[in-house]
């Protein structure tokens, strides 16, 4: 189903932020909307978004390809994006990541067999003083988890697996 039919209120609200002659501006928020359920943006969804803001599918694909928070392939329901950039790495992020891999039984870039978690290493998330930290990107948006330990993280993973949704 098209976004405009499925989320009429959201689409309208997004479009209202920008001058009507510049509705192309709405492409990024619309892509987040399109990504909400499946965790990735399908070709059909790109076409749909292109139609709403009146640009070509190629233009939409070019945006999906540029920004790292848009995904064009289905992967884990939650993406666990651990910051391993310089400031976090100075505070043990790399070890944290290694331990996490061992506990989850996957390598960076892989997805747990149940399809729940894809583990990714990312660049700075503006939480350098609270390393180790990561964010999850999932159906309910993006959430930060700071000053984490492997144990706390595994608890979160278990909770996610159980409830299928994010814990508060």
């Amino acid at each position: 189903m098209s976004l405009a039919k499925k989320y009429p209120k959201e689409v309208k609200q997004i479009l209202s932020k920008y001058p009507p002659e510049h509705k192309r501006s709405a492409v990024m928020p619309l892509l987040y909307l399109a990504q909400r359920e499946e965790g990735y943006i399908s070709k059909a969804a790109m076409q749909d978004v292109a139609g709403i803001v009146d640009i070509t599918e190629t233009d939409v694909a070019a945006i999906v390809g540029f920004y790292t928070l848009y995904h064009d392939k289905k992967e884990g329901k939650y993406r666990m994006q651990v910051c391993t950039d310089l400031p976090c790495a100075l505070r043990g992020a790399e070890q944290f990541m290694d331990n996490l891999c061992a506990n989850l039984g996957i390598k960076v870039g892989e997805t747990t067999p149940d399809g729940m978690i894809t583990l990714e290493a990312v660049t700075c998330l503006a939480a350098c003083d609270k390393a180790p930290m990561f964010q999850t990107q999932g159906p309910d948006g993006i959430k930060y988890y700071e000053n984490m330990t492997v144990d706390k993280t595994m608890e979160l993973v278990e909770a996610l697996k159980k409830s299928g949704t994010e814990v508060k």
Binding site: M46, T56, E57, T58, D59, V60, A61, A62, G65
Partner: peptide, 17 residues
């Protein structure tokens, strides 16, 4: 506008969708 760049940095590539 039927060709464009996909990806970024050194991975930038021409695509058509």
């Amino acid at each position: 506008s039927v060709i464009g760049f996909d990806e970024r940095g050194r991975s930038t590539q021409i695509v058509s969708f």
